[in-house]
């Protein structure tokens, strides 16, 4: 199946600063791409070029096959976009604002009303429809932006930090909404909240300094964490030294760390060698040697660690 969003070698400089340096992306229907990167990495600039708001210095972007600069209207008709900060006309109410969007999107007659009502209920705006947008809380403003983006049920949805500034319940609501729509759309969501990637995205792209430094599922990213697959045991302090020594002899274990706890127990953490998963070997060993332990668990690694590692290393 052809990709609904296709960006090819996008490049953008502002004066002496290269904000985006050759980013290519393609997103198919059913995919939710999490767009990650530290602040200033070029996430928003990339999205602005994909949506046709900014003209790239080089490269091109297509939405549903339409080049955003050569056929802007056709491309934009297929696109729902939530810009950074969810801008909206503050002097309007959500009802009049969404009505304006529906008219601009070419809906007529009863369609306008039904589209507006549907968007209001999906975004959970029912209680504030007649309040001026500038008087709304940050969370509601963000939801007005989301309602505006999904009003015409576009095949392509691009959202710049859709959950920024929302409380945990609102975040949950927005993620549910994204998950619901995901099977029928190609979606790009930028975020710097890593849990979001695991929660909603089928794929994650990490950029740093205007370049893509990682592209894969959340699981792929986690695999790059130094603690991914590490096994931690909680044992009596008296046994700690012996167990640690045994574990360190295993082929798949790189090294073993032991920490003494105040309650007379020790935590032993066996860190794996690259690409090794020592959990099974450790399990077998413990059983064979009849070593006793109180707790055992396998670590998945932290996305935060991976993120920090790949975005701060100079040459990734």
């Amino acid at each position: 199946m052809a990709a609904l969003i296709e960006a090819t070698a996008l490049r953008k400089t502002f004066g002496a600063i290269t904000a985006v340096d050759g980013i290519s992306l393609s997103v198919r229907k059913g995919e939710v791409l999490g767009f990650l990167g530290p602040n200033g990495a070029g996430k928003s600039t990339t999205m602005k070029m994909i949506t046709g708001f900014l003209e790239p210095d080089a490269g091109s972007a297509r939405i549903c096959g339409h080049d955003v600069l050569e056929e802007p209207k056709a491309a934009k008709a297929k696109l729902g976009y939530l810009p950074e900060g969810a801008p909206a006309y503050g002097d309007m109410t959500p009802a009049t604002f969404l009505r304006f969007i529906a008219e601009i999107r070419g809906f007529e007659g009863n369609d306008i009303k039904s589209r507006v009502i549907a968007a209001i209920s999906r975004a959970g705006l029912d209680s504030v429809v007649d309040q001026r947008i500038e008087t709304l809380s940050k969370g509601y403003k963000r939801r007005v932006g989301i309602a505006q983006a999904i009003l015409h049920d576009p095949p392509v949805l691009i959202m710049d930090e859709p959950t920024d500034g929302l409380d945990p319940n609102q975040k949950h609501h927005v993620r549910e909404l994204i998950r619901e729509m995901a099977p029928h759309k190609a979606i790009i969501v930028s975020t710097h909240i890593l849990e979001e990637v695991e929660a909603v995205c089928t794929r994650a792209v990490v950029i740093a300094k205007g370049r893509i430094v990682a592209d894969g599922t959340a699981e792929d990213l986690l695999r790059r964490a130094p603690t991914h697959g590490a096994v931690t045991l909680r044992v009596l302090q008296a046994d700690a030294e012996r167990i640690a020594k045994t574990l360190a002899d295993l082929a798949s274990v790189a090294r073993v760390e032991t920490t003494a706890e105040p309650d007379g127990r020790s935590l032993i953490r066996a860190l794996p060698k690259a690409d090794a998963a020592p959990a099974k070997a450790i399990g077998d060993l413990l059983r064979r040697e009849s070593l006793s332990f109180e707790e055992i668990y396998v670590e998945r690694g932290k996305l935060d660690d991976v993120f920090r590692e790949i975005t701060t290393s100079t040459q990734a």
């Binding site: 046709g52 934009k76 950074e84 801008p87």
Partner: peptide, 14 residues
């Protein structure tokens, strides 16, 4: 100033 230009220019409006 308010950023709505980004909204307006990414709607199907020339």
């Amino acid at each position: 100033k308010s950023g709505t230009i980004e909204l307006l220019m990414t709607l199907p409006v020339s």
